[in-house]
Design a protein around this nucleic acid. Structure first.
Length: 517
RNA sequence: GGCCAGUUCGUCUAACGGUUAGGACUCAAGAUUUUCAUUCUUGCAAUAGGGGUUCGAUUCCCCUACUGGCUACCA
């Protein structure tokens, strides 16, 4: 095992958009594979025809690509369909629906070796057993005791069994859980876990409804065939780990059984339970990496559309349930790959904090250069019909960048650099505008008109010299000027604003304000 | 209800059995400032409860409580 090359897989089910918890699972698999020099396989587990959602698979692939999580093998990051085995994709196809034919043989193998059996209960019968047990305050367990009382291939005449199989489509294959045995398991994150087999159900391995294997069978068979060495998945799978151990044993594959790690769940920011799709709408943050439109037309927001940098998003989810033990919080993908380790994954569920998510984006935004941010900003300006030059956008950005969490914030923070104020803040008016002000503004106008060159330093100097000479109050004059130029008590230093909008516009805005106010 | 897992500031988390229990987010206060921010400084705030083991438990064990997951012919 020590010399075996690490192979991990991310195996989502295309039943809807991948949510951030799923992305984190993919990320941890990816980080582990990269660090170990291993292979990251993407497999699609679409054995549930009823819950299949068109577009979900494409969504998953696009999400991973946005995050920079590229599969080495399996469903291609380009979305290319790989159906034939090739050197790069030796285990193709990687979509379980396309592997259909493979599973039957393994299901029969288990029946033949007396590790599984045909059961003929109808869904209706099962339902009434459950209700009956419940009415007695007990739990219905489909275990060894139950299987002895009901109709199945274990207690029927073989001829009767084959007759029923032929004429009746209503049969399933169930796993025959060994009686009264302790299953001792090992989890890389949780340590030793053990379970009594009598508390386990004889899970269905083969469904009658669509003639397909269930998750449990397909998953184990594929992990085995694809030579998966480490299974890193969500904690919701921990209860089925005993079954999976038993399955490996029944197949005689225990020597090739992968090592398991069950990741803690992502919990709702408030209240109870695990993070769900609804929480995003309810609390106003995305739970999905990308915007998703459901087949019924319902839209859910995404981190990408909300303006998150993918690097910030990845950084944020990496720290949900894992940390390197240092006080560092900002990591590039390369650093994450170098530092990641499964034994530093937290055991308890992590409540998601949308505020901290914003903080991560702010950190990434601040790490960008003025030039990059100006480039990010230009399209938004264009959308608003503002035509400006990259140098001006860059100047503006440099003045307001540390006020923003997202590039989307830029417009609200800087529109007055591009268009004159449309209104004047009443509170500010009351405080800084009185009948004595207009003449002062007129003199300020003259000072500014004479100011050459019209740069921030010169303006600052000229204004302050004049205020001092006339014995004026700095706060009073500057705020009145701010009212003229910005219209509200916000924004960077006035001389910076003036130099960016230029002399002509500056003087014009002063004239405007005097006329209007 | 049953099975499994978990429990350190409000949240995310750190701490070979020996620390004034550390950091980050949030919040509050102060400093700077022509405004709003930024920045800087400071502050508030935690080992679920009870028993053990130990010279000494956040750390190891047991019990209780609470939280979460699972309990489908879903994954």
């Amino acid at each position: 095992m020590a010399t075996t090359k690490v192979r991990v897989r991310f195996a989502p089910s295309p039943t809807g958009p991948l949510h951030m918890g799923g992305v984190r699972t993919a990320l941890f698999n990816y980080l582990f594979a990269r660090q170990q020099g291993g292979t990251f396989v993407l497999r699609i587990e679409d054995t549930d025809m009823q819950r299949y959602v068109p577009g979900a698979e494409e969504y998953i692939i696009e999400s991973l690509r946005w995050c920079g999580i590229m599969p080495d093998e399996g469903i291609d990051a380009s979305g290319k369909v790989v159906t034939e085995p090739s050197p790069l994709h030796p285990h193709a196809p990687y979509r379980q629906s396309e592997r259909k034919g493979l599973y039957e043989k393994y299901a029969r193998q288990l029946v033949d070796s007396n590790h599984a059996y045909y059961a003929f209960d109808t869904p209706h019968e099962l339902e009434s057993y459950r209700e009956e047990a419940e009415s007695r305050g007990q739990t219905f367990i489909y275990n060894h005791a139950f299987r002895k009382k009901t109709v199945n291939s274990l207690n029927m005449d073989p001829e009767e069994v084959s007759r029923r199989l032929e004429e009746n489509k209503n049969w399933v294959i169930r796993f025959k859980v060994p009686e009264n045995k302790m299953v001792a398991m090992h989890d890389l994150i949780r340590g030793e876990v053990s379970v009594q087999t009598n508390t386990l159900d004889d899970k269905v391995l083969w469904k009658a409804q669509d003639g397909l294997p269930t998750y449990h069978l397909a998953n184990i068979v594929d992990d085995y065939l694809m030579r998966i060495t480490h299974v890193i998945r969500g904690e919701e799978w921990l209860p089925s780990l005993p079954l999976h151990y038993l399955l490996y044993e029944a197949f005689g594959w225990q020597d090739q059984r992968p090592l398991f790690s069950h990741l803690p769940l992502l919990l709702k920011p408030d209240g109870k339970g695990k993070l769900s799709k609804r929480d995003g709408d309810r609390l106003g943050f995305p739970v999905f990496p990308l915007e998703w439109t459901s087949p019924s037309g319902e839209k859910s927001r995404g981190y990408r559309e909300d303006g998150y940098y993918p690097e910030a998003f990845v950084n944020m989810i990496a720290l949900l349930g894992w940390n390197p033990g240092t006080e560092q919080e900002i990591f590039s993908m390369e650093e994450l790959i170098a530092l990641f380790s499964l034994d530093r994954v937290i055991k308890s569920g992590a409540r998601f904090n949308p505020e901290k998510a914003k903080w991560f984006n702010q950190q990434y935004l601040r790490n960008r250069s003025d030039k990059q941010l100006a480039q990010d900003f230009m399209p938004l300006l264009r959308n608003r019909g503002i035509s400006t030059t990259p140098p001006k956008a860059e100047q503006v950005v440099s003045l307001i960048r540390n006020r923003a969490d997202f590039v989307q914030d830029f417009w609200d923070l800087s529109y007055y650099f591009f268009i004159p104020p449309a209104s004047y803040d009443p509170v500010m008016q009351k405080k800084y505008w009185n009948p004595e002000i207009p003449p002062v503004m007129l003199r300020a106008r003259e000072v500014l008109e004479r100011c050459v060159p019209f740069d921030a330093g010169s303006i600052e100097q000229a204004l302050h010299r004049w205020i001092e000479e006339e014995g004026l109050k700095t706060g009073q004059v500057m705020n009145a000027l701010r009212l003229c130029l910005v219209g509200k008590p916000q924004g960077p230093g006035l001389s910076d604003i003036m130099s960016v909008i230029g002399k002509e516009d500056t003087l014009g805005r002063i004239d405007n304000a005097i006329n209007i106010l």
